[in-house]
């Protein structure tokens, strides 16, 4: 197997891996890896996206799925919700209690995640239970590498503050 095939196979096995981690785990020099990734992108076998100062690399077949995932993890509360749902399926009340946020705030974020197709809801009696629709491993890998900028963190807190102030009035 050539070096390039080995890189491609590793990316296919670990969609959303970051450039640095890929270099570390495969033990390839930065310059060498950069060259092979450039060639793989040129051959339309992979694509990469920069977010929160990190470059995430995905196999080409992941193209339709990556965008909602990266949008979802760009918000702090949504990242926390996804990590909670990676532990087990939960309802909104449990999530609100665990994150110490109002149900209205959680409701807003659940709607966003649901519209993005990252989570799904099912009815169990009078309860609505949420679960992840994405591969848990990919979600955890991408979130664990994500380093938000200071203004991103502050913006996320401002959003949650506005949602809390507005209580249950948010519909979007």
């Amino acid at each position: 197997m050539t070096h390039r095939e080995e890189i491609l196979q590793y990316i296919r096995q670990n969609p959303g891996i970051t450039f640095r981690r890929l270099a570390d785990e495969l033990g390839i020099g930065i310059g060498n890896l950069q060259y092979h990734l450039y060639q793989l992108e040129k051959e339309d076998l992979i694509f990469s996206k920069k977010l929160g100062g990190k470059r995430y690399i995905f196999p080409k077949e992941f193209e339709k799925e990556y965008e909602p995932l990266l949008i979802a993890i760009s918000n702090e509360t949504q990242r926390k919700i996804l990590l909670l749902l990676a532990e087990k399926d939960m309802n909104q009340r449990e999530i609100a209690e665990r994150l110490k946020l109002t149900q209205a705030t959680i409701n807003y974020h659940m709607n966003v995640l649901s519209k993005l197709g990252i989570i799904e809801r099912r009815k169990e009696g009078r309860n609505v239970i949420y679960s992840l629709k994405y591969d848990i491993e990919i979600i955890i890998r991408v979130i664990s590498e994500y380093r938000p900028k200071l203004w991103d963190k502050l913006a996320d807190r401002l959003i949650d503050l506005m949602l809390t102030l507005k209580g249950g009035e948010i519909n979007d």
């Binding site: 913006a155 959003i159 506005m162």
Partner: peptide
């Protein structure tokens, strides 16, 4: 103002535009 702009771009909440 910049933080509010980032928050607006992320959430699309019009109320943040007023802020």
């Amino acid at each position: 103002s910049f933080i509010s702009w980032v928050a607006y771009k992320k959430s699309g909440m019009k109320s943040i535009l007023f802020l």
